[in-house]
């Protein structure tokens, strides 16, 4: 054991920094690593492939429709979808705003409910055991059955749609938050307790911040459901919105306009999805940096 210590080093003066491999300076913490390829590459690498695939699919679709001479009521060519869609752009835009409103308000409501439930469950084992089966059961309700009932109960206004959006989106957030809170392990809890923290301080100092990365993952899953939920709620009955627009255009055999609304829906979902990354970076920049430092993608 001692042989390994036959030190040739002079003993360190008290207070001097030991020479374990220290980064050269705070601004350049890892001097010896080969440089990563510049970020621009990864940008092109992540944008070009999906664009190419989408373009190829559209071209194939256009060709197939033109060559087979299929009726536009059955399957319109993408070019027709675009042209007809733009012709009614102002109408579609109005419906889009309605859908966006339902999505945002419903999702905000869902977030509030999810946070309240998750925090309550984090503080109480009884609540956890009591509520979890109910929460899981809520996810087994077929939306297709409950959405028309919501209209019967709450009318054609905003409320039933908000409830449908909340119903399809709150569960992933609750689960993400509960698991996130539990990322703080027993040792961390002991450390905080030894510092004199009670349960509330333990929550605010550790459990809450360590849950945020899982929260944003859950948020991404949920936000894509939110748009679909809003459209579904409108589909069964509404005064305006992409859902009711699709429903009426389908009944009029305007397949091209249905597909135009579908395209708008996709753009809406993707935009909201990307927005979560922006918010994540603003709220928890440390998480992003840490992952990058560890080399995760």
């Amino acid at each position: 054991m001692t042989s390994a210590l036959n030190s040739k080093r002079a003993p360190l003066a008290a207070g001097a920094a030991p020479a374990d491999p220290p980064p050269a300076s705070p601004s350049a913490p890892r001097p010896a690593r080969p440089k990563r390829r510049p970020r621009r590459d990864s940008f092109w690498g992540s944008v070009v492939p999906p664009v190419v695939i989408v373009v190829l699919l559209l071209v194939g679709w256009e060709l197939a429709v033109t060559l087979t001479g299929m009726r536009p009521q059955v399957l319109p060519a993408p070019s027709r979808v675009v042209v007809e869609g733009f012709e009614r752009a102002d109408i579609i835009w109005g419906h889009t705003l309605s859908t966006l409103q339902v999505t945002v308000i419903g999702f905000a409501f869902s977030l509030i409910v999810a946070w309240i439930i998750a925090v309550a469950i984090d503080f109480s084992g009884v609540l956890r055991r009591g509520l979890m089966p109910l929460l899981v059961a809520s996810q087994t309700i077929p939306i297709i059955a409950i959405a028309p009932l919501m209209i019967i109960w709450f009318g054609f206004g905003l409320l039933p749609k908000i409830l449908v959006v909340a119903l399809v989106t709150f569960f992933p957030i609750v689960v993400g938050l509960i698991e996130g809170f539990n990322k703080a392990d027993r040792e961390t809890s002991n450390l905080l307790r030894s510092m004199g923290a009670g349960r509330w301080k333990e929550f605010t100092f550790v459990r809450l911040p360590s849950a945020l990365p899982s929260f944003f993952t859950a948020l991404r899953i949920s936000i894509t459901y939110a748009v679909v939920g809003a459209i579904f709620a409108e589909y069964v009955g509404a005064q305006s919105g992409l859902g009711i627009f699709m429903s009426t255009q389908k009944n009029a055999f305007r397949t091209d306009l249905v597909l135009a609304a579908v395209a708008v829906t996709a753009v809406l979902s993707i935009s909201l999805y990307l927005l979560t990354f922006v918010i994540e970076r603003l709220v928890i920049p440390w998480s992003f940096k840490e992952r990058k430092a560890r080399g995760d993608r």
């Binding site: 040792e187 307790r193 030894s194 911040p209 928890i284 840490e290």
Partner: peptide, 29 residues
């Protein structure tokens, strides 16, 4: 608990805090 300062085996530094903020954790608590 107020007589002892406890240091666990794992460093348990919080990634959302800078080093100086991590150092201040106990005082803030």
């Amino acid at each position: 608990r107020e007589h002892f300062a406890y240091m666990p085996q794992k460093d348990l530094l919080f990634p959302w805090r800078t080093i100086v903020e991590n150092g201040a954790l106990g005082l803030e608590v």
